[in-house]
């Protein structure tokens, strides 16, 4: 099948797609946008967080065809320079595999709640699993970006 959608502001088309391909697979292997990560492919880790029509979702749980005609923003296209710099400055990045998902999820949190409390940060990022940092520096980064 054919999938046409807007990704990071550009129209992208994939031909000869197997109907079982997830949006995550399409982004990575069809469009070469490897920033969204394939850690669990069951919505449990948040590493593939993207915006789909402005809503934060796990790209692995969107069937490629469902993105047809829709607008996708990935970590490569999200306007989140402040969040990204805060993650580097705070030391919130180690192996970095969870980081792209956290950048998009943090961007989503801060656009809804510009000055989140500790509890709000934790609840908003509960779907983004990090195995390296123990989260302390991630919370620091979110606070840094919110200032």
């Amino acid at each position: 099948m054919r999938i046409a959608c807007t990704v990071n502001g550009h129209t992208r088309v994939a031909e000869n797609v197997w109907a079982g391909e997830s949006l995550l697979y399409v982004l990575r292997e069809r469009f070469g946008l490897y920033g969204s990560k394939n850690a669990c492919e069951q919505g449990e880790c948040g590493s593939c967080s993207v915006y789909l029509d402005g809503s934060l979702v796990c790209a692995c749980l969107v069937l490629g065809g469902q993105a047809n005609g829709r607008e996708v923003v990935t970590v490569e296209g999200v306007d989140a320079a402040g969040v990204q710099q805060a993650f580097v400055d705070a030391g919130a990045v180690q192996c970095g595999f969870c980081t792209p998902g956290l950048i998009v999820a943090t961007h989503d949190l801060l656009r809804r709640v510009p000055q989140p409390s500790d509890a709000q940060i934790r609840e908003a990022l509960a779907g983004n699993v990090c195995r390296c940092t123990g989260y302390a520096k991630i919370i620091e980064a979110v606070n840094m970006a919110a200032r």
Binding site: G20, S22, E41, Q42, G65
Partner: peptide, 20 residues
């Protein structure tokens, strides 16, 4: 997709037809 996609991604299920 929070149920169906998990089954597809982890190869637990191969539906003939999926309707969005």
């Amino acid at each position: 997709g929070t149920d169906v996609m998990v089954e597809i991604n982890l190869d637990h299920r191969r539906p003939e037809t999926v309707m969005d």
